[in-house]
Design a protein around this nucleic acid. Structure first.
Lengths: 200, 200, 200, 200
DNA sequence: TATGAATGAGCGTTCATTCAT
DNA sequence: CATGAATGAACGCTCATTCAT
């Protein structure tokens, strides 16, 4: 009685995870034009199975992005009251870059922009980042003219920078995160030429 | 009558430029999936004419990227012996981003990775960047642990960061270039966690 | 306990009827392309259950048509010895059209043409119609050059004619049955230009 | 100069006609589910060619129906001032049934209901039928309670009736047209049980 | 040289059908 | 018996590319 219909769901859930992983890899390798057929093949299932789990290719993309966003937001919760706010923000950016497992699938964010789930999760994530950034700024760990939107936008840069290399070292992104984070520190900050943007 | 086949050549050259411009706009608007038909339509020529000028769609992309690379390399020549090497490097990065500002066609670089023309021009550009970076480092304008490859990889970041916003202010990228360039300065530089990569 | 497997059988029989009704409605609403999934959903059962009751979609269609044919044949039995043979034939055609009135599923007849059950029931119905037509002709209620095959073929026409209208009045078919039946009467009959066909 | 670009168009026009003919045959044989691939195969062209000529399958269907409607309307023009209005109406119904070449593609009318071209042509045809019917009624050739809408709806019936037969004689539809037309005559007309419908 | 009609592989998606649970 | 996850063939449609004119 306690879990009467789980057995079937076990297989289905496994396929769902296989598909999400396969899709992420295919998108990382072939960009937005990765085909559903290739994703299915990589996951070891038939094409039709993809559509049992995700109504459309767009829905699949939104599900990948939702997973990312959820992990990121969860990460923030653990860092929200860390002793060192500067360290906490750096740690968040580290987690943010790391959880993509070197996959530069930034473009999926763009492709899923209209999805309501994604919009909601993105707003939650944004609120969390605002918290971290406010605390870091209050603690003097980052320059005063940098906003949470700046951090939100810069978050993806380290992985993307590295993606221009054919076979990047697995943790090379840490190098560029360090450089960019140094640019956020108060030390030696030059005035910023443009006002901070706001999210729509 | 004095030069019987010049008019045609002139037309052909003009068509080539029209096509490159149209293609850049189409790619900027519709991403990598911009269609040859739409490019031809925008250029005001028939589809077949595209293939008279560019063997394949890939070749067209490589031609666009080649144009960009050539302009960038030419820009370096003008900056190579500037009085202030730090300013010269920043100026180069500004020009580099500015050129893309109107059209974020970063992804075309990735799509044209295998093209020999692009590889050659990229290597030339890389050599030019090395020059600027070496001079800037020697002048103490940038930190000593940053290499020309780092700069090469970071070059596209400001425009890319901004591309995550739906309707970015036209010069917003300057804000992120300033932040990233601050990260390249010697002041307050923290040690970099990973060795600099090398280009293949 | 006294009849241990009756409850299940009862459920099964109920499901069968639910499915037939649901299928008829789905076919009426969506035409021949009504999907098995939608039928199952409307009947409140799982897709697999449809195939437990009907080997294929074709078999389901044939079962619907068989039901219609059975009802029609049964109707003839009641009319076979009516006092007024002309009235009996008209009454039969009225019942035949009325049965379809709610759901114009004419096309199902065509789709089930090869089914042996349907063929057998159709032959029985045909025999019944022959009886009615022969009596009506003998009584002088219909013209002498009209055969039972003619009536068989014309039987569906009133409903079909009306189906060309988006929102026909529920009994509009009666208007066209009246016109067509007038064409079958001896009064003012013009000679028929082609010999009567025979059923295969 | 008088026909500078016709040569290419000749082939294209021929393909267009081949496709329309092939489509009509495929639809007649397989109903609404006739596939574009099969139509292309029957026409002897590649699948893509279908879509060069007709934007969608729906557009192809609407083009077929438009052709039918145009022919019918043209036929009316020739009959509009015939000496015998009753004969003219019968002649029109004969042409209407004949031009379908025994193909019962009634359902295409329904499938193309939303197309503006079809709607316009249908209205023109309807106006023409109204003319013929009014004249025939004024001449006493048809009963007074029959309207042009009735004739419009009954127009397809002869061919449809015959379509229920596997291998009907090529002109068998004339038999049922005669019966139905007899039903429209004033002689022996019984009162009609339902008011005449109006087109939307 | 320029055109645009034709091609056919490939795409996202649907759906009748099967079968492990 | 019923379920619903999985299958894979087929569908409508797109598009880079070819080639007769």
């Amino acid at each position: 009685m306690s879990s009467p219909d789980r057995p079937l769901r076990t297989d289905a859930a496994r396929n769902r995870e296989l598909l999400l992983a396969a899709a992420e890899e295919e998108f990382a390798e072939h960009g937005p034009s990765a085909s559903v057929a290739a994703i299915a093949r990589r996951a070891g299932v038939a094409k039709g199975t993809v559509f049992r789990h995700f109504a459309t290719k767009e829905d699949l993309i939104a599900s990948i992005v939702s997973g990312h966003l959820t992990i990121l937001t969860a990460g923030i919760a653990r860092l929200a009251d860390a002793a060192d706010p500067g360290e906490a923000l750096l740690e968040f950016l580290t987690v943010a870059a790391d959880q993509r497992q070197q996959h530069d699938v930034d473009f999926l964010w763009t492709l899923s922009e209209g999805d309501p789930r994604v919009t909601e999760l993105r707003d939650q994530l944004y609120a969390g980042i605002e918290l971290l950034v406010d605390r870091a700024r209050a603690a003097g760990a980052i320059r005063s003219d940098v906003t949470s939107t700046d951090v939100f936008l810069l978050m993806c840069a380290p992985v993307h920078v590295v993606a221009n290399l054919p076979n990047p070292a697995p943790e090379l992104w840490k190098r560029y995160l360090a450089i960019i984070f140094d640019g956020l520190r108060p030390e030696g900050a030059s005035p910023l030429p443009q006002p901070a943007p706001t999210l729509p």
